[in-house]
Design a protein around this nucleic acid. Structure first.
Lengths: 264, 264
DNA sequence: GGGTCGCTGTTTACGTCGTAAACAGCGGGG
DNA sequence: CCCCGCTGTTTACGACGTAAACAGCGACCC
């Protein structure tokens, strides 16, 4: 098992395969491709990745597709619905990821590991889209944000149950896993957003003022080098492994983890 | 028609004190209180809680305060800045919470427990605001979303370091703790949003269609009763306790948890 | 006491947004 | 040949965020 060094994040920006679901059918070379829902949503993802969520308007998206804004409404009932489609499309990139499998071939831990990294790859590839995943509520209350599609929930539950988890334990694991993923990845992309924003706004005045404010927080100042280290990849790995260990314990002791730590 | 036992949640809607920071400046005796930034932000929080984030416009907020929209711009430079203020105000309710202390009087575990429940109370009290906490990036990359203010970061680090954590371990704990809080609470409020929305949109057609779709996901169907249980409070407690145990281990073994599971 | 000033809130106005509705080109079946 | 359904365009409306000019009004200086 190779350790991820900070400078070589294995979940970085290579199109691990998922692109398939999103490519808007190359506009150069060939003539004007016909509009359709998939192409529109694909273009929206592309647009958000390039210019940010706030910049996405129906008019601009239309222009990006060489078409008037109203043309989009033949295929998309509203902007909100479009955003739902964007979330779905991005999450569906999981299906195109060859490293993530719907069924566990090498044990449930391997399955969960691959799934987690697959989702992380998506989050990192679409940092501006990912907050939407958390914001826009899924259809049913029990299909939780990071996984979203019923197919994955089904796959998740089956995988664990087939591996010996009780039904309660599997559901409980599903909850723990989703909240872990959501929290970690949301934090990671938001942090990334800050870093990027900080880069393109060099303001001497604010910087100085921030520095003065800091005088009341000596520990923060002293630890700033540590605090601003980007150890996301290592943190993620560690927390994920911890979660898996915890689940393993639940499995071995054959109980739902509701209460009662008998461990020392 | 109160819910089964959701009301037993200790972090539910009682004004545990935090209201102080958000109250739109008590109008004692006198008639129309003058406008000012605090009052505007307070009204915005109130408005979002009542009508949802999407419903907040400058015009409507003005009307809510008995004033034209443009009057707000004397005290708030833009809508975006107003939202930043809202986030800050809501997070600052922590200072008004008598159960949360800036310094650990009964050990670091007690400190972290109280802090976590304080933040959870805020999230549950302002479910429509909380996603903003995750979405709007903090000033510095290392002041992470759920805690946000430097004062809390300082307090957090000092508490752990004074309790014997190494600096690396304290920073690492800070990261683990923030992502845990963010993930759990975001999931919890989003779930709550779905449940509520589902309540006021009774559509027979979609329900039927959803039911047919489900036929491909037998496990999900079978486990639906388990899946739709709302065990947020218990889950939260359990995950929090697990995190604390994990930190305790780090403390006792005196190492940063970055690496080296000596197991396997 | 009258003139001026600074604060505060209002009015008006502009450009952009999402989207409803009417319209126009066009390719294929009576 | 004509007409119809499909697709994209035009036009239009109301709401939005916000810049700019303006109006009321208490305080202060002479």
């Amino acid at each position: 098992m190779d350790l991820p060094r900070a400078d070589a994040d294995p979940d970085s920006r290579e199109g691990r395969g998922g692109m398939a679901a999103v490519m808007p059918a190359a506009p150069p070379g060939s003539g004007r491709t016909a509009l359709d829902r998939r192409r529109i949503i694909g273009a929206a993802v592309e647009f958000i990745d390039a210019h940010g969520l706030a910049a996405l308007t129906m008019r601009r998206l239309g222009a990006h597709l060489g078409v008037e804004a109203m043309a989009l409404y033949r295929y998309v009932p509203s902007r909100d619905n479009l955003l739902d489609g964007v979330v779905e499309a991005v999450v569906d990139e999981l299906y195109g990821d060859p490293d993530v499998h719907l069924t566990p071939g090498h044990g449930w831990q391997d399955y969960l590991q691959r799934l987690a990294h697959g989702v992380r790859r998506i989050a990192l590839a679409h940092p501006e889209v990912f907050p939407l995943v958390a914001t826009r509520p899924p259809a049913a209350p029990w299909v939780r944000p990071p996984l979203r599609s019923l197919r994955w929930v089904e796959s998740f539950l089956v995988a664990l149950i087939d591996s010996g988890f009780s039904e309660e334990a599997a559901v409980s694991a599903y909850r723990a896993y989703s909240s872990f993923l959501l929290g970690h990845l949301l934090l990671e992309v938001s942090q990334q957003g800050v870093a990027v924003n900080a880069e393109d706004k060099p303001e001497g005045v604010e910087e100085a003022q921030a520095a003065t404010d800091l005088s009341e927080y000596p520990t923060v100042v002293r630890l700033e080098p540590l605090l601003s280290l980007d150890e996301s990849a290592a943190e993620f790995e560690e927390a994920l492994e911890n979660l898996l260990e915890r689940l393993e314990l639940v499995l071995r002791e054959g109980r739902a983890p509701g209460r009662g730590d008998d461990r020392e």
